[in-house]
Write a protein that binds this DNA or RNA. Structure first.
Lengths: 207, 207
DNA sequence: AAATGGTTTAACTGGATGGTTAAAATGAGT
DNA sequence: ACTCATTTTAACCATCCAGTTAAACCATTT
């Protein structure tokens, strides 16, 4: 019956979920405070205004992803395996849909609410992919392709699939019975499949 | 010096741009009215409330895309060429970024503002891609893959690239000088490159 | 030129929302 | 137990915003 006062980190958890579901404009400070179990003024006292809160959310979520990517980069797997890992890291995690939704929306927004501080983190995700591709090319197993466009297709495809569940199910109801849209794939399998398709265009094939 | 009163279609043009730039929550009815050169009440009189306006915008933009896709489907090109066309249709058009931005945001939103009427149109874009793939498989040139995931990667990749210009340029400023992010690709080339990568994973290769 | 009916307008409303404040509660150090 | 800084709270405020209203406007008909 007691309510242990939530840590700042727990507040950020709630804020992350709210922003990922409603977007920056759609999220309400009062709503976040209530969901976190703190008074609205406490939220302002502890963390700050909406911009500061959003920045904190972005820094933490992108920071976590970049950390996982850097770790993965150090492992001794093949470049090809690392592409698969890259896709899985994007799409999985404690809170799968959230990263994708926030990323998609921020991009669609032209980064209107994106503070400078998170830009290096976004840039680093591209950088990691570039390093994987460069190493694959050095080993003579990858073609030269535009890493940034691969990044778009990989991130776009995985994030879209990770977040489109609600719409997908609504569309599925009115789609032909034999449509592929009815197949509910777990996120990691979807990420694998997308990565595999793209690897088909990257891998050097002798023919 | 005279101001010819804008047609409903011109109002929809403005509304489409506003919604694509700001999103549903970020767009202001007063802003749309002013930009279109009509009184706010006129906007309500002529079209209706925010939901009705948004629905009209969605129906028109998705309807146009689906129309173009259906036309393309009828042409006598190879399945492979049609995949390329598919990507180009998504990303090009009178108002390139708008479709992508609206689509990405709607998906990230879980379709909170998406009316039932546009679902068949969204479903049809997947359907068109499925038909292309089926025909390619019948001709023995395509592997069996999950069409829905191809759709994700293609739409996601192209839409992301089409809309991420502003962020990309900001990230580029703090990226290493040799990063692929600095290369400014025209949209149709980017769409081609992404389609080509994915085709690598679709095409049947003898090896 | 008066009546009619569709269209546009400025002004307004009610409720929500981001942000503030002053006072109360809490707790650590003495 | 007292002091003082930190934290929490309820109440408050100014602004914004979707949507409405009643009057004005204009074209056509009679």
């Amino acid at each position: 019956m007691t309510k242990p006062k939530p840590s700042n980190d727990e507040i950020l958890d709630i804020a992350t979920r709210t922003f990922s579901e409603k977007g920056y404009d759609g999220a309400r400070m009062a709503e976040i405070a209530k969901a976190a179990g703190v008074n609205k003024a406490t939220l302002y006292y502890r963390i700050g205004d909406k911009d500061i809160l959003f920045t904190a959310v972005l820094k933490r979520i992108f920071g976590t992803k970049v950390g996982q990517l850097e770790e993965m980069l150090k492992t001794p797997q093949s470049a090809e395996a690392k592409i698969h890992e890259f896709a899985k890291i994007l799409v999985l995690g404690e809170i799968p849909e959230q990263f994708g939704a926030i990323m998609l929306r921020e991009i669609a927004n032209g980064g209107r609410n994106l503070p400078d501080e998170v830009l290096p983190l976004m840039g680093r995700t591209v950088g990691v992919l570039e390093e994987i591709l460069a190493s694959g090319q050095k080993d003579g197993v990858f073609k030269p392709i535009n890493p940034f466009l691969l990044h778009m297709a990989l991130v776009g495809g995985c994030s879209l699939y990770a977040t489109n569940g609600p719409i997908r199910r609504r569309v599925a109801q009115m789609a032909p019975k034999d449509s592929a849209i009815h197949k509910e794939l777990p996120l990691n399998e979807a990420a694998n499949h997308i990565a595999e398709m793209l690897l088909g265009g990257i891998r050097i094939t002798r023919n």
